[in-house]
């Protein structure tokens, strides 16, 4: 009977090899090691043996049962693994297909640039001061040392309103007067962002409406070298630490001395191209020491206080940063433009 058992064992192992899926495996289990399986039944027949043979048969029968159980489990694991492997293989997708579209919101590029400007100046202690768009002639010009009929008025082409003496601000500089009158005699460090307006034909290079950011520092000890140091820091923070910055003489009625801030051309690296008009330099901001007349009009004694001021155009800066060649994109709001930023 032991021989029969051994034969059955070999048959069961062979059959197990042939079971290649869950169903066959369960069938094998029923057939050999289940409650009514062949091996189980054979083992029960131990009583038919003479008593002296029983222990040996029993030992061997238990061994075989254990081994078949182990072989069964191993085979089951194997089949499961094969199944998973098959599933994974057939589950491959084309990873190069585009993803599900996500509808993202964005800020207008001018707002993005304004925020970069705010952030840099905020770290240097300059806070934002907001001022009005529709101004009076007095604040936009006269108090800034630009009396009526002064030739310097030619520097701004102005939109006037039908109300006499009321105009659309041509620059954010009138905000200087308003800030000074609000804060005098405290020291001041503010930037003044805002929309400005110029009477100009709209073209690739000029707009009738544009943002400007003005800056103003007033204190007991504000010097030209402070202006140069602070502006250089700002320009390098915005355009990169490797950029070259230069200052040259200019003229604005509300500052003296007045300077122009130039940045080495980002496009050609200073070799000369059409963007920098073949000079290798880009005008990036105007600045200077606050004119004593303006300080006085703002409520500060120019014998006691000094100050510096600067002004720049976020649209121009944005154009230089991203190689935008036409200012009309900004208020054109073409979605194909806006979604690039």
């Amino acid at each position: 009977m032991l021989d029969q058992l051994e034969a059955l064992y070999r048959e069961a192992l062979e059959a197990l090899e042939g079971a290649s899926d869950d169903e066959a495996l369960r069938g094998w289990e029923r057939e050999y090691i289940g409650r009514k399986g062949k091996v189980t039944l054979m083992v029960r027949r131990v009583g038919e043996l003479p008593p002296e043979e029983r222990p040996a048969f029993g030992r061997r029968a238990n061994e075989i049962k254990r081994e078949l159980q182990a072989a069964f489990e191993q085979r089951a694991r194997q089949i499961e693994q094969e199944k998973l492997a098959r599933e994974l293989e057939s589950g491959a997708i084309d990873v190069t297909l585009p993803g599900r579209p996500v509808q993202v919101g964005r800020l207008h590029p001018s707002t993005q640039t304004l925020r970069r400007i705010y952030d840099i100046w905020a770290e240097m202690g300059f806070q934002v001061y907001l001022s009005r768009d529709v101004e009076d002639d007095e604040t936009n010009f006269t108090l800034l040392n630009i009396p009526p009929h002064h030739p310097a008025r030619d520097m701004w082409d102005t939109f006037y309103t039908t109300r006499p003496g009321v105009l659309l601000r041509t620059h954010t500089s009138p905000g200087q007067i308003r800030a000074m009158r609000e804060f005098a005699p405290e020291p001041i460090r503010v930037i003044l962002p805002g929309m400005c307006y110029r009477y100009e034909q709209i073209s690739a290079r000029s707009e009738i409406q544009f943002y400007q950011v003005e800056g103003l520092a007033v204190g007991h000890n504000i010097r030209l070298t402070d202006l140069i140091g602070t502006m250089s820091d700002f320009v390098r923070r915005l355009f990169g630490p490797e950029r070259k910055v230069r200052f040259r003489a200019s003229y604005f009625p509300f500052t003296e001395p007045s300077l122009e801030v130039d940045l080495d051309c980002i496009l050609c690296g200073g070799k000369g191209c059409s963007v920098c008009k073949h000079t290798g330099w880009l005008e990036i901001a105007g600045c200077g020491m606050v004119h004593p007349v303006v300080l006085r009009n703002g409520g500060y004694d120019p014998e006691e206080f000094t100050g510096f001021a600067f002004g720049m155009g976020p649209e121009r800066i944005t154009m230089l940063l991203y190689g935008i060649d036409d200012i009309r994109y900004f208020w054109g709001n073409d979605i194909r433009f806006l979604e690039q930023f």
Partner: peptide
């Protein structure tokens, strides 16, 4: 102007 070295503002910081 190219001969002026930039400095940091030494004046007191206004109220923030």
């Amino acid at each position: 102007y190219d001969r002026f070295e930039g400095t940091q503002i030494a004046d007191e910081l206004p109220p923030q």
